[in-house]
């Protein structure tokens, strides 16, 4: 890296600031006033939407270059992992099973 340490620190401070602001502003503003019920209903759907939006490309698409891929081992492993999660509702168990099956596909496939 050709950058001086002081410049690097300045970069980190600026990156930290623009990262912190979107994390802090809503929780600071919205926690101090009563929220309208429609907003609470909408926000109630945000976690499931965010999780699905984060997961779907990881399971269904290649990253470089971006392309649809319905044959990824990630997707194959997701099926039994999802069923296990539905059945047991155990977070730790699901994580470990997913890791184990993914490790297996790395050996078998």
């Amino acid at each position: 890296m050709s950058m001086a340490f002081a410049d690097y620190l300045f970069l980190l401070a600026a990156m930290g600031a623009v990262t912190y602001l979107p994390r802090w502003l809503p929780v600071f503003l919205l926690s101090r006033r009563p929220l309208p019920s429609w907003l609470i209903d909408w926000l109630d759907l945000i976690p499931v939407a965010v999780l699905a939006a984060l997961l779907a490309p990881a399971l269904l698409a290649d990253s470089a270059p971006r392309a649809l891929n319905l044959g990824k081992p990630e997707l194959l492993v997701a099926v039994p992992t999802l069923l296990f999660a539905l059945k047991t509702r155990s977070l730790g168990g699901t994580v470990l099973l997913g890791m184990f099956l993914y490790w297996l596909t790395g050996i078998v496939l």
Partner: peptide, 25 residues
């Protein structure tokens, strides 16, 4: 990925949540 899958299962609390998840995906 395993953690997100399980948390997604926890969040699916009915038809509207399932619908939202499918649309989001």
């Amino acid at each position: 990925i395993g953690m997100f899958l399980c948390l997604l299962v926890f969040q699916l609390r009915g038809a509207f949540h399932l619908f939202t998840a499918l649309v989001a995906g």
